[in-house]
């Protein structure tokens, strides 16, 4: 439960350091490499194994990802996290950092779900509309979900824009069930 809170703290510190060194995007891509690295079962197991000492753990992680790292900052974070017994946090560090980076660039990521696949032009149109509504440059990932029946549903952060037929039908159902004669 605590991991997101901890990784957010480390991500904030790392982000500040990266900004000072003007390496924000490099660190971001390094963290992506780290995230794919630690997802491998062998490395994840090593990080979570309490019988291994810090030196071995560091060697295992760096051995797997060192070639792909372009900045020393990320190498230092890995070492620091392991020394402080916060290795668990490395699994969610990339996500936390990514959110910070997006925020600083005035961008937001979201999901758009629709019953049928959307065209390029439609996607751009929706992105533009949502960008205007949220005040951030929105990039959307598209998913096709036939169970929505029609319309579309876009989620950016915790904001949801919903015009799907499924929701409309659910609302109508509620209204019919609670209907009463007025007057």
């Amino acid at each position: 439960m605590l991991a997101p809170v901890v990784s957010k703290r480390y991500a904030e510190a790392l982000f500040a350091a990266a900004q000072d060194a003007r390496l924000v995007t490099e660190v971001e891509s390094d963290l992506m490499a780290l995230a794919t690295g630690v997802r491998e079962p062998a490395i994840a197991a090593a990080l979570r194994n309490p019988t291994l000492d810090a030196k071995t753990q560091k060697a295992t992680v760096l051995g797997a990802v060192d070639a792909r790292l372009r900045t020393n900052l990320v190498r230092n974070v890995i070492a620091l996290a392991i020394d402080r017994r916060r290795a668990e946090m490395l699994f969610s560090l990339a996500d936390a950092y990514h959110r910070l980076a997006l925020e600083s660039r005035g961008e937001a990521e979201g999901v758009v779900e629709s019953a049928k696949a959307l065209s390029e032009a439609e996607m751009r149109d929706i992105e533009a509309t949502l960008s205007k509504a949220t005040g951030k440059r929105v990039r959307l990932q598209a998913h096709v979900r036939p169970e929505l029946l029609g319309g579309l549903r876009a989620t950016v952060g915790s904001l949801r824009y919903d015009s799907t037929a499924k929701t409309r039908l659910a609302e109508l159902r509620e209204k019919l069930l609670s209907a009463r004669i007025e007057g």
């Binding site: 904001l159 949801r160 015009s163 929701t167 019919l176 004669i181």
Partner: peptide, 29 residues
């Protein structure tokens, strides 16, 4: 469920009249 035709009709009527361009915005978690 105990539906009465008159109520169903009035609910549906409102729904039809206000169908166009309705997009719900909500905060979700």
């Amino acid at each position: 469920v105990d539906l009465r035709p008159a109520e169903v009709r009035s609910v549906l009527k409102k729904e039809i009249e206000g169908y166009q361009g309705k997009v719900g915005v909500e905060s979700v978690g």
